[in-house]
């Protein structure tokens, strides 16, 4: 019962989202950027790095903003379905699955397809994984924002702040941390701190696959030095999975007792 209800809702949410203009434009822009970046630069890892930066810039903010707005706009629809004896857990997870799969498919078509066709390498595959994970993570955070905030405007504000915090502010704080404690052995605490930013995790996951890791900043070098590629990748993937699961579990818990 839980399973079939969920499949039905996800199916219809996807039918709605595949006709959604924002999703279509998002796919298109990602595709244009990916194709141009990959075909322009002669060096394949240079092209991949540009694509990584595009992913880290666009995916978190678009995913969290789009998902938050979509969830809030679905409020009345969610109420209607709950009144049809759909269980709350089923409903909220179905909303998440619908939006997360639509955004993931957009990323796969926009970035995944061009990079597999134009620049197939293990690093490209890792980049696709990283992008999908970021989509799942920021959609899960959006779900949590939707469940916590009652008001749509406040929710969108929280989504923007969260995205900016992880994409811009966090690295700034990290730098000032490194700067003020440069006299001390801070390498290990730094590794721990990086785990608190999914965007950094996404970056490291790809950098570990590239030879340029050492060139690409402190965090990449640290990871390579301390854990090597394999353990570093496993650790990063584990952290990213937690970044999906914890917001999701918190959302389900809170939504079960929420007044709609």
């Amino acid at each position: 019962m839980l399973h079939t209800d969920m499949k039905t809702i996800v199916k219809y949410i996807l039918l709605d989202l595949f006709k959604n203009k924002t999703i279509l434009v998002y796919t298109f822009i990602l595709a244009v950027l990916a194709v141009s970046v990959l075909s322009m630069s002669g060096n394949s890892s240079k092209g991949l790095l540009s694509l990584l930066n595009i992913t880290l810039l666009f995916v978190p903010i678009i995913s969290i903003l789009f998902a938050t707005i979509y969830f809030f706009n679905s409020m009345e629809f969610i109420e209607l379905l709950l009144a049809q004896s759909v269980r709350r857990k089923t409903m909220i997870l179905a909303e998440y699955c619908g939006v997360a799969s639509a955004l993931s498919i957009a990323y796969l078509l926009g970035v995944g397809l061009p990079s597999v066709l134009l620049n197939y390498s293990p690093a490209s595959i890792t980049l696709i994984f990283s992008g999908i994970f970021l989509t799942l993570i920021f959609t899960a955070i959006a779900l949590l924002i939707f469940v916590v905030f009652k008001d749509k405007t406040k929710g969108i504000g929280a989504a923007i702040i969260t995205a900016l915090f992880f994409t811009l502010l966090f690295d700034g704080l990290l730098l000032s941390f490194i700067y003020s404690f440069s006299e001390y052995p801070i390498d290990k605490p730094l590794l721990g701190l990086i785990s608190f930013n999914p965007v950094d995790l996404g970056r490291i996951l790809v950098l570990l696959q590239l030879d340029v890791a050492v060139m690409m900043g402190y965090s990449g070098a640290l990871f390579k030095e301390f854990m090597g590629s394999v353990i570093g990748s496993v650790y990063t993937l584990g952290c990213m999975s937690l970044w999906v699961l914890i917001p999701l579990a918190a959302s389900v818990r809170k939504f079960k007792r929420k007044d709609l």
Binding site: L15, N73, E76, L80
Partner: peptide, 12 residues
């Protein structure tokens, strides 16, 4: 149940 505001996914 017939809600006061009927809002549905836009493209359905």
């Amino acid at each position: 149940y017939m809600p006061q505001i009927g809002r549905y996914p836009e493209n359905m």
